[in-house]
């Protein structure tokens, strides 16, 4: 059954209900415990834990990861889903190893973001929102990252790269493993 349609922004609803639960090494568990210890209510730790699970599970919340979170926080999987899909930094689908997030909001836009985007996309051969075939890079256009004074900029993973020029982009991307 295939159907032709152009969903606005398809939600990752197709994910299968997890039948296995992720496990983590003790040091990661300890890291999560440290976050849980901060709050009187377990649920509060949902975002920090999501980041950890995402980091450990290849960059996104895979179904076993979701099952783990639900179990750890005493929530239903749907509770995890509703929160995960609200926040744009939580990935519910796989992303490339290096997630290049180019800021496209006003200050960056007028300071040369379009050139940078075009260059990055041409260099990697993908469009914003896509991942390279080898799974190394994903490119997305994101909203203001708080680097307007050093525009244009992008963030790779959690690293800020500011005052970009085409040459600098080459340098940065080429240096990535």
């Amino acid at each position: 059954m295939s159907q032709q349609f152009t969903p606005n922004n398809p939600l990752p609803q197709e994910a299968k209900v997890p039948d296995e639960i992720a496990t983590f090494p003790p040091e990661v568990e300890a890291e999560m415990d440290a976050h849980l210890a901060k709050y009187p209510v377990k649920r509060s730790a949902i975002l920090p834990l999501m980041f950890i699970v995402q980091r450990e599970r290849g960059g996104y919340l895979d179904p076993p990861g979701v099952a783990y979170l639900a179990d750890r926080l005493g929530l239903r999987i749907t509770d995890i889903w509703e929160v995960a899909t609200f926040y744009s930094m939580i990935n519910t689908e796989p992303v490339g190893r290096h997630h290049i997030q180019i800021c496209k909001t006003l200050s960056c836009k007028i300071m040369g973001e379009p050139e940078i985007t075009e260059h990055v996309c041409r260099k990697l051969g993908i469009q914003p929102g896509e991942t390279t075939a080898d799974g190394r890079f994903s490119v997305s256009l994101v909203e203001c990252l708080g680097s307007c004074g050093t525009a244009p900029m992008f963030q790779i993973g959690f690293d800020y790269h500011e005052n970009l020029t085409v040459e600098k982009v080459d340098e940065i991307l080429d240096a990535l493993p």
């Binding site: 901060k38 709050y39 509060s44 975002l47 920090p48 999501m50 980041f51 609200f86 926040y87 744009s88 930094m89 939580i90 994101v142 909203e143 203001c144």
Partner: peptide, 10 residues
């Protein structure tokens, strides 16, 4: 004092 992280939502 504790830090808490958001996850991308203005």
């Amino acid at each position: 004092v504790y830090t808490h992280t958001g996850a991308g939502a203005y």
